[in-house]
Amino acid sequence: MSARFIECLDVGKTYQGRNGAVEALRGVSLSCAEGEFVCLLGLSGCGKSTLLQMIAGLETPSTGQIIVAGRELDGPSPATSIVFQDHGLFPWMSVQANVEFNMKARGVARAERRARAAEMLDLTGLAGFAARYPHELSGGMRQRVGIARALTTRPRALLMDEPFGALDAQTRGHLQRELLDIWARQRTTVLFVTHSIDEAVFLADRILVFTPRPGQLAAVVGVDLPRPRDPRSEGFAALSRQLRGMLGTEGGAE
């Protein structure tokens, strides 16, 4: 287990917009230990998704460097897998083909693909849905497919970009608990972007708080509440209050 499995050193991102340069992220340094569950919390426009996309190798930082599994990134690392809010499922592929896609891209042989896909469909509660198409599934089921697909390449870190942001509260709660279960079983590192304080407190070992314009890492808050966590407990409420103050939204960021 490496204490610095994912490391960002003074990472910044500036976009060249039509009306001049826009600084999305400035001077972010952080590290994430292997097996850790870290939430990136902030209001919209604070650059947290941008940072995640850079760690996924989908965008390059304008300044600084990102190291994943001991190597500086020059593109997507095989050690990570990303899950998007709008799931990114291919509508013309069955659930089976969707789940196999990442393995196909990495050149995994067909028999091996079948076996691993079945394993992950089982893990995410999708056994029996392999032949369905995405439009036949509910939002929660679709995101399960997205997670199953991300897990098939046995990533050492799962990068999740507001994966439950588009779901209703009840489905969201279900999937949060399932994700913690998967995390406990697979022992993967999870980097989880969210704008929901409650979600971050429920899930994370550590919360990285971001503030906007330009996006900056404002604080790092450790969560030492025992798991499984109870959102109605005293400690949960106190931590949520503290974070609410940091984000500068008394009314909450829900």
């Binding site: 996924a56 190798g57 989908l58 997507p76 990303i82 998007f84 896609f101 891209a105 990495r106 390449t153």
Partner: peptide, 9 residues
Amino acid sequence: KVAAAAGAG
């Protein structure tokens, strides 16, 4: 993005 992140050719 899914394809790029998966390293698809």
